[in-house]
Amino acid sequence: MYTTCRGRGVHRRRGHIRKVLALCLLSAVCVMSGCSSLALRNERVDRILVEAQAFVEKGEYRPALAIYESALTEYPRQTRLLYNLGLTYALSGDFASSLGTLDTLNDLTAHGNVKYLKAYGGVAAAAMEMEIAIDAWLRVLELDPVDMDTRMRLISAYMDSGDFERAYRSALQAYGLKQYSKVLFEKLSELEVSSGNGDGVSWQLIADTYT
Rank of each mutant, 00 (worst) to 15 (best):
R6W: 07
R6F: 06
G7P: 05
R8E: 15
R8Q: 11
R14V: 15
G15H: 13
H16G: 04
H16A: 05
I17C: 07
A22K: 05
C24G: 08
C24Q: 10
L25I: 07
M32R: 15
G34V: 10
S37L: 10
A39C: 05
R44T: 14
L49H: 04
A54P: 10
F55Q: 06
V56H: 01
V56M: 09
E57W: 02
K58E: 10
G59T: 09
E60N: 15
Y61G: 10
P63H: 14
A64E: 00
A64V: 13
I67W: 02
I67Y: 00
I67D: 05
Y68N: 08
Y68G: 04
E69S: 09
S70V: 14
A71C: 14
L72Y: 07
Y75D: 13
P76W: 15
R77Y: 14
T79F: 01
L81D: 03
L82F: 03
G86A: 10
L87W: 03
L87P: 00
T88R: 02
S92D: 07
F95S: 00
S97A: 11
S98Y: 02
S98M: 01
S98W: 06
T101E: 03
T101N: 01
T101D: 08
D103L: 09
L105K: 09
N106E: 13
D107R: 11
T109Y: 01
Y116F: 05
L117P: 04
Y120T: 04
V123H: 03
A124M: 01
A127K: 02
A127S: 14
M130H: 15
A136N: 10
R139L: 11
L141V: 11
L141K: 04
E142N: 12
L143R: 12
L143E: 15
D144E: 11
D144A: 09
P145N: 14
R151Y: 02
R153A: 00
R153T: 05
S156G: 11
A157D: 10
A157L: 05
G162D: 09
A167V: 05
A167D: 02
R169M: 15
S170V: 09
A174V: 13
Y175Q: 15
Q179G: 08
S181K: 11
S181T: 06
V183N: 04
V183K: 01
V183Y: 03
L184V: 07
L184N: 03
F185I: 11
E186P: 00
L188C: 00
E190R: 06
L191S: 06
V193A: 12
S194C: 13
G196D: 08
N197K: 09
N197A: 13
D199Y: 13
D199W: 12
D199V: 13
W203Q: 07
Q204L: 10
L205Y: 14
I206M: 04
I206K: 04
I206E: 03
Y210S: 15
